[in-house]
């Protein structure tokens, strides 16, 4: 069930009602994988593709839409800077200047990133605007997230990769925040995506895709998947069940259909 804009802390929403958590489901992953493998076979057959088809949450959302402003290098740079600042926030590091701190950390992580070059060539006005933008997104994040307890084992920018049809298709994903352990008797893993755009129809697909990838990564269905907009402060969250996962499989299948022979 999706929620309306929530005034409370994201951590409270992630915690939810502890007494209503379902038992851990470690059987669904194999079925989902089989469905995806079948679909990949129906699209590609036994033929070997020249290159691997890469699918990410961005690919899922881009299906059938034209290029948007959010795809510009500056928007992508803003997204990366906010994501890094969020990582510092979760690590409970004091962030004095979100823009500069995130930029410094980015340089240390990937010094040869082409987007960093684009930032170097910004004029003073553009740079000041970007800095103000990142600071504003960070302020929304730090106000809304709350302190994530270390006992939740928070990990940021968690990556997942799944190959299908041999090496025909590669599903890739990065979740901004994952909390909880997949080894408990009840399910308690929650996923959070941070977006700098306002939430729209694509946000639901992103949430579902994260849930599907986490299920295939750990073979355990997560408890809930959420998306938080640092632009508006909105949080959408949904408890993961079979229907959510099946819809995620359909989303992936829809993207793969583009490679179907006429």
């Amino acid at each position: 069930m999706l929620s309306a804009p929530i005034p409370e802390l994201v951590t409270d929403v992630l915690r939810g009602d502890r007494t209503r958590r379902p038992r851990r489901d470690d059987t669904a992953a194999a079925g989902l994988r089989a469905l995806l493998e079948d679909h990949v076979f129906s699209v590609f057959g036994a033929r070997r593709t020249e290159s691997t088809v890469m699918i990410t949450s961005a690919t899922i959302n881009a299906a059938g839409r034209v290029l948007e402003l959010a795809d510009s290098p500056l928007s992508r740079a803003r997204g990366i800077l906010v994501s890094i600042a969020f990582r510092l926030l979760v690590a409970q590091v004091h962030v004095a200047d979100p823009f500069m701190d995130a930029l410094n950390a980015w340089r240390a992580e990937r010094p040869r990133d082409e987007l960093l070059d684009a930032l170097v060539h910004l004029d003073d006005d553009q740079r000041a605007r970007l800095s103000a933008d990142v600071t504003s997104h960070f302020a929304t994040l730090s106000r809304s997230m709350g302190t994530i307890p270390s006992g939740w084992r928070p990990r940021t920018s968690q990556r997942a990769r799944q190959l299908l049809g041999g090496t025909a298709v590669c599903l890739r994903d990065v979740v901004d925040l994952v909390v909880g352990s997949p080894h408990l008797a009840v399910t308690n893993v929650a996923l959070v995506d941070i977006t700098t755009s306002p939430l729209g129809p694509g946000a639901e697909r992103t949430m579902r895709y994260h849930a599907l990838m986490q299920t295939m990564r750990t073979s355990v269905v997560p408890l809930r998947t959420s998306i938080f907009s640092s632009a508006t402060g909105d949080l959408w969250t949904v408890d993961v069940d079979q229907e959510v996962l099946m819809r995620a499989v359909e989303d992936v299948a829809r993207v793969l259909d583009r490679w179907k022979s006429p």
Partner: peptide
């Protein structure tokens, strides 16, 4: 390294440790 880089290093190391523990704790 600067303070924010140290923060990112900490975040990466926590990720690694959590992931490793998740793999073998059971």
């Amino acid at each position: 390294v600067t303070h924010p880089v140290l923060g990112l290093i900490t975040a990466e190391a926590v990720n690694w440790a959590t992931q490793s523990l998740e793999c073998v704790e059971a």
